[in-house]
Design a protein around this nucleic acid. Sequence first.
DNA 1: GTACTAGTACGAATAAACTCGAACTATAGA
DNA 2: TCTATAGTTCGAGTTTATTCGTACTAGTAC
Lengths: 124, 124
Amino acid sequence: MPNLAATYRLDREPDDLPERLPEPAVENIRLERVMGVLADPLRLTIVQRLLRESEDFDQTCGWFGFDRPKSTLTHHFKALREAGVITQRQYGLERRSRVRLDDLGHRFPGLIDLVLAWSPASEG
Amino acid sequence: MPNLAATYRLDREPDDLPERLPEPAVENIRLERVMGVLADPLRLTIVQRLLRESEDFDQTCGWFGFDRPKSTLTHHFKALREAGVITQRQYGLERRSRVRLDDLGHRFPGLIDLVLAWSPASEG
DNA sequence: GTACTAGTACGAATAAACTCGAACTATAGA
DNA sequence: TCTATAGTTCGAGTTTATTCGTACTAGTAC
């Protein structure tokens, strides 16, 4: 495994990074859409883990370690991206995701904190 | 039309009010469920209008003036109640709704503000 | 009592979401 | 070039939501 911190640090210049996959512009992010996409526990988990455990660089699909078919994961990541919650970039073979922190914070102040504070049903 | 402000003011004692219809206890309100229920524009509108236009007393289904069959409205109000977003009380013939402001504010600080700030897609 | 009203319950049709397997694409490394 | 890897795309089955019409219930008013 390569040194991700060195290779994919987010403090690089934007020019260094691969293009973002298609996603809505900030002003087109809709609250009802975001709510809908965060209504799913798996997707809520994805966003929360990106927020809690992955501050300084993007993460791949596989990093999460979900025991689900790849096509299912693709489906959920795409849903998150198309709703405007995450950005995805193609790093060679890998497609890495990060939360659109600034955009969401600007459009929907407080939303990120709700996701951070969430605890899954199985937990206490 | 009777004087609602006098008849149904919320600063009455709880004993004066009809029972609440079945709803989850505060600690059982789940964020993913709330998100799911607020993903629908009609329901988001219901909650927003209750918040913006109805601070001092509960409102009936009909008060909103939606041009939808009654059974559709029943469906959505029930969804909101079962998710823990609103409380409903039976006042004689009418079933009046109000947002569970304290409960939601306590469980999910910031959520109410998101709903208040929301603007429907058709608007600017 | 009868009639009106506000809303529920049920059932069916349609639409949307979730899940997954199988086949595929594109990159990386030997 | 061959192989492994990380992920996509497509299609189908299943589930869940939405919408609505019709029939019903429970208060209210006369």
